[in-house]
Nucleic acid binder design. Structure first.
Lengths: 128, 128
DNA sequence: CCAACTGTACTAGTGTATTAGTACACTATG
DNA sequence: CATAGTGTACTAATACACTAGTACAGTTGG
């Protein structure tokens, strides 16, 4: 796997890790059951503290993206199968509103905003 | 104007103010040239420090949403007319990616994600 | 069973975010 | 010109975020 950090971005390291893993999963580069590097190994590669990686893995598990088992490792979970659709919608709506508000703020047209979202969905590829 | 805070949400007060003003502007409830309450007046209403309101107004001005003039007041600016479209797209794309990744993470279909965005755009109303 | 690996829990230090207090400078209004 | 109202700049107190150090508990594989 390819994970790289931007120390000068101001974004916390564990958040950078989380978003990169999420993107990899969303794009299909990581599939259900795939194993992620151990906390210590990844920490050694990136020259950071193992606990920082652990923090990212804990958050990912809380979000249902991965599953961590002591002694075993950290794996990609199967995508929130038990979650009701209404709950999914509830989680996603704030992000949709954010995009809508910011887009309108920039005086972009409805079509331009929607098109940009479709482009990003296409970039992710995977299973449409 | 109707502004209300949620002290127990964990979201910083100045960010709550910013997002509510942005939504009001995006929805057309606030139009170019409209005046916002003064820092002291709004702070008194909400029982917070005037500097917290000032912080929100400064950020809004930095984002091109409002224009603050010392001694004058704070007004809604006209929507970033000098901004190149390429720059607008550059600003908005991270939000689009965020929505795309989170939506895919939840195993929602492309259509469902796009539809949710369109609903939020409709909610804002104003000038389609 | 043992050794080497895994994630976890606890503690601690450093920095920054958040809010507030206070004083300043500018503008409008009479 | 004077007063009241405006945004701004500076300082400071507090809390929390972030990262790291270290020790613990579980699992795997020989």
């Amino acid at each position: 796997m390819l994970l790289h950090l931007n120390p000068s971005s101001g974004v916390p390291v564990y958040l950078q890790l989380e978003s990169q893993v999420k993107q990899a999963v969303a794009a299909g580069a990581l599939r259900t059951g795939d194993t992620l590097p151990s906390t210590r190994k990844l920490a050694a590669e990136l020259r950071i503290n193992p606990n920082t990686v652990a923090r990212a893995y804990q958050d990912l598990e809380r979000d249902g993206v991965t599953l961590s088992v002591p002694g075993g490792g950290t794996f990609v979970a199967d995508g929130l199968p038990g979650l009701l659709k209404s709950e999914k919608v509830k989680r996603l709506r704030p992000h949709a509103r954010q995009l809508a508000v910011e887009g309108r703020q920039l005086r972009l047209t409805r079509e331009e905003i929607v098109k940009m979202l479709e482009e990003e969905l296409d970039k992710l590829g995977g299973q449409p």
